[in-house]
């Protein structure tokens, strides 16, 4: 029986490490898989990135602009309402003579044929302000913000005069006015010691002026 002594081959450490490291190789199928993966991924068309998140400062700036625009619009609307209130209040003070004196809405309609609308009875006048047709004195043509309007005068139960205005409603001219048909509450504006109540009803802008 003979014992074989193992062969000892001295190698510089560097070479030995290099041989040891490079002895490990990817299997052909692994190599193929990695090469294919790279080619497939790099050949894919660019997927558009999802909409990038907008920077916080931009979102903040837009929010500020929206808030400013909202308050600006609201302020502008308030100014328009005040202008209407001032105009109708001034007309109320002038107490110009009536073109037609009647207590009938039918006669009023017959008289106001120059208007783009038919004067109509407001539901609020009787229910809220106790101004029935019997309290009507008469009517005359006038204008509100340059639009031809009907002016009706009433004498209230307190014997005070009331002036009621009707004009075709155009939001572009009169701004946003509460529509009682939509359940909104009329706007009240105090000007020069008078209370002006403004609302929209049946497509007409209506305003009632009362001395305080």
């Amino acid at each position: 029986m003979t014992w074989e002594t193992p062969e000892h081959t001295p190698l510089p450490l560097k070479d030995a490490i290099r041989e040891e490291v490079t002895s490990e190789q990817l299997a052909p199928d692994q190599l193929h898989e990695l090469l294919t993966m790279q080619q497939e991924v790099l050949a894919e068309p660019e997927v558009p990135e999802p909409a990038k998140r907008k920077p916080a400062w931009l979102v903040g700036a837009v929010a500020c602009l929206v808030v400013i625009a909202f308050f600006g619009w609201q302020y502008s609307n308030q100014q328009t309402m005040r202008a209407i209130a001032l105009e109708v209040a001034e007309n109320h003070l002038k107490l110009k003579p009536m073109d037609v004196e009647t207590q009938s809405m039918g006669e009023i309609r017959q008289y106001f044929i120059q208007l783009d609308f038919a004067p109509t009875r407001s539901s609020l006048l009787e229910t809220q302000y106790a101004l029935s047709d019997q309290r009507m004195i008469g009517g005359r043509y006038c204008s509100v913000k340059g639009v031809t309007a009907a002016q009706l005068r009433y004498r209230g139960t307190d014997n005070e005069l009331r002036t009621f205005y009707e004009v075709g409603y155009d939001a572009a001219i009169f701004g946003r006015v509460p529509d009682i048909g939509k359940g909104q509450t009329p706007t009240e504006v105090m000007v020069n010691g008078m209370k002006v109540t403004i609302w929209v009803e049946k497509g007409l802008l209506m305003a009632l002026v009362k001395d305080m």
């Binding site: 193992p6 062969e7 000892h8 081959t9 001295p10 190698l11 510089p12 450490l13 560097k14 030995a16 490490i17 041989e19 040891e20």
Partner: peptide, 13 residues
């Protein structure tokens, strides 16, 4: 001198 270190080829693994 690490360059001079020598190792048995059978032992490196």
């Amino acid at each position: 001198n690490i360059e001079k270190l020598v190792i048995d080829a059978n032992e490196i693994k």
